[in-house]
Amino acid sequence: MDTGITQDELWIGGMIRARRQKLELTLQEVSEAAGISTGYLSLIERDKATPALTTLSRIAAALGVGIDAFVGKPQPADCITRADTRPQFLLGASKVRYERLGAVFPGSELSCFILTIEPGYSSEQTGHAGEETFYVLSGRLDFTLDGQVMELQAGDSAHYDSTRAHGWANPHDEVAQVLWTGTLDLFGDRAGGSEQRAE
């Protein structure tokens, strides 16, 4: 599928490695600070694995930066996002595309994205503070919650406590699109964002 995003924008792993090396930190030091295995961090740095946004935020915190250091911090001008100018980014080589829908204003607590998930994608299982809800716009998605796998299709939705272990996979032969909303402050836009990134 043509995502409309150039190959140069895919290699977040290289930016993570460059930042780690600049700080003269070992893989083990960063992985321990981020709460992931050294082998998994190595895969991420080589763009062989795609971290969940939660994991990417913990890696960024371990490297002393915000997630925006790797994906570019979107700056919505107001409460409206336009389909043809909406901020987008990709993680790793799996080509999961994120389109940011949310704006930032005093007291805001939600992050909101449209995710385009290509066939063959499988996320890690993760848990973090907060809550999430998502709605399947098109395609099918296998959603895992506390070890139970549930197949969702267009029109299905889920709402759950994010501390529960959860993850997604698209083992099907069609692209899936998901509207996701959660309380995790990925970009540190809101008050207390730095604390959330460090969880």
Rank of each mutant, 00 (worst) to 15 (best):
Q153E: 06
T85V: 07
A198H: 13
T183V: 06
A49N: 03
K22S: 11
P74N: 03
K22W: 04
C112N: 10
D161P: 08
P119V: 11
P87W: 02
M15I: 09
W11F: 14
G192A: 08
Q125H: 08
L179G: 03
C79S: 15
P76F: 13
D189Q: 09
E199M: 14
S31D: 13
L27A: 10
A69S: 12
I44W: 01
E124P: 14
G130I: 15
E109N: 11
T3C: 11
A169T: 05
L63F: 01
R97I: 14
D8S: 15
R19G: 02
E29N: 14
Y40M: 15
D189L: 14
I16M: 05
L110E: 01
E132P: 13
G66W: 08
T116G: 08
I12S: 01
W11N: 15
A61L: 08
D189W: 15
S94G: 10
T26Q: 05
T181D: 10
G66D: 15
G155A: 13
N170I: 03
R190I: 02
F105P: 00
Y121R: 02
F70M: 12
G102C: 11
L152N: 01
S162G: 09
I16V: 13
G13Q: 13
G107V: 09
D8K: 15
F187D: 05
A60F: 05
V175Y: 03
A129M: 13
E9K: 08
Q75H: 10
E99L: 09
T181E: 10
G13D: 05
Y121I: 06
V71H: 05
F89A: 03
E45D: 13
G193F: 13
L43R: 07
E132H: 06
R46L: 12
G4W: 10
R46D: 01
G192F: 04
G192C: 08
E199Q: 08
A93Q: 14
L63A: 04
L27E: 02
F187A: 07
Q7I: 14
E99M: 06
G72N: 11
H159W: 11
L115Y: 05
T181F: 01
Q153H: 12
L101Y: 01
G155D: 11
D161L: 12
V30M: 04
F70D: 01
A61C: 04
L56T: 13
F113A: 12
R190F: 08
E131C: 02
F70Y: 06
E9S: 14
A165P: 12
P171T: 11
L10H: 08
R19K: 13
A158K: 12
A52W: 04
T50R: 00
F113P: 00
E118A: 09
Q28A: 09
T50P: 12
F187T: 04
M150Y: 00
A18N: 07
G4L: 10
E131P: 07
A61R: 14
L91S: 13
L23D: 10
T3N: 08
L23V: 11
A129C: 06
A198D: 05
S157W: 12
Q88F: 00
P119Y: 14
L141V: 05
A158W: 05
Q196C: 01
Q125F: 04
S162K: 06
W168G: 00
A18K: 13
V30N: 03
R58A: 01
E131L: 10
T50K: 06
F187K: 03
G127K: 12
L27K: 02
S157Y: 08
G64L: 15
H128Y: 05
Q88V: 12
